[in-house]
Amino acid sequence: MNATVRLLENVARATVGVHSQVPTTHVSAAIGLGTDRRGTGTIVSPDGYILTVHYLLLGAQSVVVTLASGEQLSARIIGKDYNSGLGLLKIEGSQLPWLEVVSSQNCAVGQEAFTVSSLGGEKRCADAGIVTYTGPFDAVWEFVLDRSVCVTASSLNIGFSGGPICDNLGRVIAVSYLNFADIGRAILGIPGENYLAARDELIRYGRRTTSPPKAWVGILTYTMREHVVVAGVMPGSPGDKAGLQQGDLVITADGRDINERRILYDVLGSHQPGDSIQVKVLRNNRIFNLEIPAVRAEDYFA
């Protein structure tokens, strides 16, 4: 990696630690996110807008960011984009160190990249790697990216997610979303173009307004031998209320055969919140036909 020390220093100065506190009563605290969350953010404007991942901010009562200097500042939640998984914060300031966010569309497999992440407080972790994948991604929870950016990472990279994935000019091409360094030596990122498309709406409205909200039912799933299995159901979610249970095997959704998770998510994505989705599941050798009224994820996590 040919990134100079000065380049790394510039990126590190624009990287912040993010610490959010969430009440125990919030629904997100019960699904594995906890109440004391730590992550990374990137200052993306000289007046203090900070880009991070939205799951750090779900239900947060307070957010404190720590600058590279060690100074701690209270941050306001400006907006959350549930479709892309990005979140935007704001601190008071002017002429702050900041990084430019660019589209990843010109990013190619084999290209050099580097990451900077918070280790808590003012401590930072830098790691060099290469881009190994640019393509679709779907998660156990109901989350889909039509394009993601995956870069190699050292097994010693224990930095918190939400920080910048940069090209060799120090520009942010993606935001670190999941750190698999300890098991797969990789970091998966949300491409910069998602922020560029959402920025103005997040600042003005706190959410996306031009892209339609996706139908959400509150399930966790995995694919096994060309079958999709329900790994969990979020308490009080539409899936829970409709009777979905952990261990259910999803046979069809809206009459479409479901043999991989992405197909199920595509069916959900074809609906608007308020629509009812017809799902057929196999449970204990019995068939159950369920009608699930979808909602907006942001309403559930409000």
Rank of each mutant, 00 (worst) to 15 (best):
L88S: 09
T223L: 09
N83L: 13
S237G: 14
D146T: 07
D36V: 07
I31L: 14
N259C: 12
N284Q: 12
L290N: 01
A181E: 03
V18G: 03
E112V: 06
V140N: 14
D275I: 03
L73A: 01
R283A: 06
E193S: 03
G255A: 02
C107K: 00
V131H: 04
D200Y: 00
G85P: 05
Q105K: 14
H54E: 14
S62V: 05
V233M: 05
D254Q: 11
P235L: 04
I173F: 04
G163C: 06
T252S: 14
G170W: 07
S161V: 11
Q111W: 08
M224T: 12
D182C: 02
V233I: 11
I173M: 10
I158Q: 14
I287N: 12
G129H: 06
V53C: 13
P235H: 12
A14T: 03
I77V: 15
L57C: 13
E193V: 01
Y49T: 10
G162E: 00
T15K: 01
S276Q: 13
T24K: 11
L178D: 02
G236T: 02
L56I: 13
G59L: 12
M224I: 09
S69E: 09
G79Y: 00
V250S: 06
D167W: 03
T132F: 05
H19P: 01
I183W: 01
V44M: 07
L67N: 04
A181F: 06
G39K: 00
R296K: 15
T252R: 06
T4F: 01
G121Y: 04
V5H: 05
D275L: 05
L56D: 07
K280D: 13
P212Y: 02
N179I: 02
F301A: 07
L86N: 03
N10R: 12
A29F: 05
S62D: 10
V101R: 00
Y82D: 06
S270Q: 13
A12Y: 01
I263V: 15
P212W: 03
G93H: 07
Y300M: 02
G184E: 10
L73T: 02
W141I: 05
L33S: 10
D275V: 04
P23L: 05
G129V: 06
A126H: 09
C166Y: 04
Y222P: 02
G192S: 10
G206Y: 00
T24C: 04
S154P: 08
E112G: 11
F288W: 14
Y133Q: 10
L7M: 14
L188V: 14
E112P: 08
D200G: 01
F301L: 15
Y300V: 02
L73K: 15
S45P: 05
Q61L: 13
R124C: 03
A139D: 13
G189T: 04
G255Q: 03
I258S: 07
